[in-house]
Design a protein around this nucleic acid. Structure first.
Lengths: 127, 127
DNA sequence: CTGTATCCTGTAGGATACTG
DNA sequence: CAGTATCCTACAGGATACAG
């Protein structure tokens, strides 16, 4: 019978639902970037803002707050004359890094592959 | 000077922009789930539909088309009396799996931690 | 500097109904 | 079974202006 229903392997169920819930913490479009830059060490609000070109203050704040609430980052206010705030990954936050890096790695690979394919189309074209 | 600007490590720039572009392929809310289930082997449309409770036919189709266009999945129509379509990860699609698994793993860890923390709050409460 | 408040838009995704 | 088409909503995120 060629039409048997295959079982799903499911050694462990993935995130059910829209990857949200568990991954809500990493859900925002910019969140991975934030965590990635924070993985290099503590960083201030304005530094992150220039690190991540294109992100708005609003979104940066939002994401940072969420991450803080989730316990992934620590927020420390330095009572200096020009107020400065330092953000830092917590232990839990550090645990997210490998996943982020895996994503980033794949992203780069995909990009290269795509670029190479495009070049081939222009150059040698069909074999 | 306590206020030096730290360089970002950036051994390799992460995805700039909203993680989109490179990761657009994995961007959809349900895409990781689809890839994950496909990683167990070829699977039919309706099977995926029950695998992933809550996903609508429309979205499933959309994601599948996108993944196909990106070259991550292969779509094969079996000309049987009740038409059936089999989806399968391509080599490129397989490359996405590790990243997905990393995400899933982190998601589970986070979930457990959160559950445990909640239990502690109910049980022993403050030290 | 570090945010917050508001307004506005795009778009992913749900519901539903219909087709080959 | 496997989709497609349409309508509709929610919410992320950009822009801008203002505040401690």
């Amino acid at each position: 019978m060629p039409l048997k229903v295959r079982k799903n392997h499911s050694p462990e169920p993935p995130l059910n639902c829209p990857l949200s819930e568990c991954l809500a913490i990493v859900g925002g479009a910019w969140t991975p970037n934030i965590i990635w830059y924070l993985s290099a060490g503590p960083r201030r609000f304005s530094e992150l803002k220039v690190d991540i070109p294109g992100i708005s203050a609003k979104v940066l704040t939002q994401r940072l707050r969420t991450l803080e609430a989730e316990g992934a980052v620590h927020r420390e206010v330095k009572p200096t004359s020009p107020p400065s705030v330092e953000y830092r990954l917590t232990d839990m936050g550090e645990e997210l890094v490998p996943a982020i890096e895996a994503i980033v790695a794949v992203g780069h690979k995909l990009k290269q592959r795509k670029a190479r394919a495009a070049r081939l189309n222009f150059g040698t074209a069909q074999s």
